[in-house]
Structure formats: C-alpha cells, structure tokens
Design a protein around this nucleic acid. Structure first.
Lengths: 119, 119, 119, 119
DNA sequence: GTGGTCTAGACCACC
DNA sequence: GTGGTCTAGACCACA
C-alpha cells in the first residue's frame, strides 16, 4: 500500500475506511478488519492503524465492542456523507471559488480539466 | 492577523502576498513591506516571514535587492498565475473530481454552492 | 442487554448479580441462572459470565455446587453490603470530596441533584 | 510523580491540568509547560504527555500555537467546570444515589465519612 | 526550541 | 484472539 507524504498516514487510513463505507465495501454494523490485520495488510505499524480507528471512533463512524473488534456504526454512511459534505462546503468550495476568480476560469473549464485528468 | 493551523503559516503569508500581487495591491517592481515590518504588522516571528519571502523568491515572484528590500518581480503576475494554475490542476482538480464522485454531486451543484457562499 | 464500555463487562455482570441479591431478586441459598443461561439472555460470551461468577465466588458471595449450578451464599447479603461499603469509603468518598471542592458544591447541592435525578 | 494504575496515565495528566486551571495555577491564555518539559518533570514519556494535551485540545480547553506551545483557552475555566459538572451529574450522582439506597446511608453519614477522610 | 508523526516492541485486561 | 496503553527512540516541518 502506497501513501503520499502530504497527509498523515493515519488520516489516509481513515479516508480509506470512510471511502470504503461510502462504496459499501463494509456495510453498516459489519466488522472491519482488526487493528493487527489491517496493519499487516497495508504494511503499517499497528499504532498508526489504531490512531486512525480511534479518530473515526471519536466521530462515531465506527465503534468498538470490547474484545471483539471495531464495527461500522449503524448510521455511518449518513455521518460520513455529512462530514465530507461539510468539509467540501467549508473548505473546498471557498478555495475553488477564489481560484476560479483569480485564474479567470469558468466551471466549463473545470469540466474539461476533470475530463482530461480522468481520460 | 489570524492564521488557521491546517497549513504552515509561512505558506499562508506567501498566499497573502501572491493574492495581493494578483489584486494589484503591489504593482510590478514595487517594494513590498520589509521582513520586520511585515512581521510586526501580522504578529509573527520574523523568521517565518523570511521563510515566506524566500519561498517566493525561489519562484522568482519577488526578488531581493541587498540592503534595500524585496520587490515584486517584473513578470510576477504571470508567474503567480502559472504557479496557481499548476497547483490547481495537479491538486485541486483531482480532489474535486474524487469528492464529486463520492458525494454524487454535479458541477451544477457546485455552481449553486459557490453562489450560496458568495451571496 | 446494553453495557457501557467504561467498565469491564464482567464487572458490570457482577454488579447485576450483587444488586439483584440486595434487592432480594435471588434469596440466600437460591440457585442463580447457569453460566450458559445468563450468557444467552444477556448476549455475552460465556467466558465473560464465567469470569463474573468466579469473581463473586472468590468473595464467597456465590458458591458453586459441581454439576448443579451456582447458589447465593447464606450470608451473601452481609458480604455484599460489606464489599460495597468498602468500595464506597475507599473510592467513592475521596472522589466525591475532591469534586465537591473543585466545583464548589455543598452536600445540600448534592441532595438537590439526587432529587432531580430521581424526580 | 505518582500515578495510580486504575486510570490511564494520560487521563491523570489531563486531570492534573484541568485541576490546575480551576485552581488558577495557569491563567487563561497563559502558556502551559511544553510537552517535553512536562514529560521530564513528571517522569513520563513525551508521547504520553502529548496524548493528554491532544485530548484537552480536542475539547478546546487548551490550544496550540504552531511552533510556540500550548496555551490555556480563553474560556477554559468555564469549559472545564461545565465538563466536570456534566461528568458529576451523569456519572457520580446516579452511582451515589444508588449506593446510598443500597447501603441505607444518609447524606449526614456521607458528611461524617468525608470529614473522617480529610481529618 | 516547538509540536507531529511513525516505528518497534512490550505488557496488560478482557472476550 | 481483541483493543488499550506506555516506552524508547527516531525523523520531520515549522517558528
């Protein structure tokens, strides 16, 4: 597993999980890989995985059953979407608006750039 | 002056300057505030301001005349635009594409969100 | 059955039993539910129930008749009260004293809070 | 510095700080000892201190200025009192009420026990 | 100097 | 087996 260095690894792991939840890779109330399993599978220290899990647990996206493991919260999808949406609106949108203005680009230009990137 | 903790302060200062250049707050070849002036006015360690200036100097957006001060480069505007454009294409666009997909949003939704933010 | 995660589940089960004994839910020398019965009824691993039973057996609050089951000890009530009293004096009282001092509350305030909770 | 083993050390450190704030040991907006200073003074690993600080930062009781240190939040006292008060009401009071009932003790008995402990 | 992150490895209570 | 905590030590970006 490859990580980029711009963002803390534990946050990248957290995103891995939230994205997986949105993509229904893990259903609600389903058990996710144990800290140790995840750590070996992505070749990272268990402490780092633990930090990602704790981070998500604080946001009630996953929860822990003592001695059994971590589970996707019942309303995890809703929470994740709400969280990402908030981040998008408060951080991405203002930055985007500002950049478009500064660079004098239209949303049509953005559409083209996105297509180029994906193509 | 308030800084958010998500990004290095020296980068926030650099943005302050590049935005000012695009907004013609400082014209080409004009002198910008000295490191010390800037440091006291925004209440930041002079080393941090120096780092921002050096960062912009490396990209030839500002240049230093020894013993006199820092000046906006002749073609600063062009360079800034190019810099921001590169950042936009390599970082903003991929992130935007991914978020739109995950949250199932269209560019039309983005247009509305931008208008809401500005309105 | 819901457990909070702040305390070990086996201790929560033990409290369930001691409270039941004080409330005369099970009389002295009466048989309490088997480990398996208890485990299925409260949806917990049998090992965990066993640990709670062993814990109480060590304090001679319940006792085991091989092949028959666990029984409330003859003087269980006395022992439970003594146990809880000890815990109360050594743990609850010091914590209470400290909190009252920090929050600048009187015992009269405590009386009101208790009444509110119950009312 | 002595810690008891019933509670995680990082939580005991956090309490050390919140108690210190209530006792005006550190005023609002004042800098608290750096992670390393605290670590050496109480003879604990810096990571453990870091965890306590992060824990308090999450609750906006202390805040961090990049490269400078941690500072007591402006409204830290209010937050701490509210936090402790909530804990007291939701956790201590119900437990106390239950224990008093089970042990058939009055608040007058509690008063005596507190005095004995302190005396 | 400051915090922030990560690794490696250990020990523990608990299920 | 599970998570939870702690230590030791390292490296990094930043002020």
């Amino acid at each position: 597993m490859e990580f980029h260095s711009q963002q803390a690894i534990f946050l990248q792991i957290a995103n891995l999980l939230t994205d997986g939840i949105l993509e229904k890779k893990w259903a609600a109330e389903e058990r996710i890989p144990s800290v140790r399993e995840m750590a070996t599978s992505i070749e990272v220290n268990p402490n780092t995985v633990m930090r990602a899990y704790t981070f998500l647990q604080d946001q009630e996206i996953i929860l822990n059953k003592r001695g059994i493991g971590f589970f996707v919260a019942t309303d995890a999808t809703v929470r994740v979407i709400e969280l990402k949406r908030q981040e998008f609106i408060t951080q991405e949108i203002p930055r985007l608006a500002r950049t478009l203005k500064l660079l004098n680009l239209s949303l049509e230009d953005v559409r083209k750039l996105i297509n180029q990137t994906e193509g």
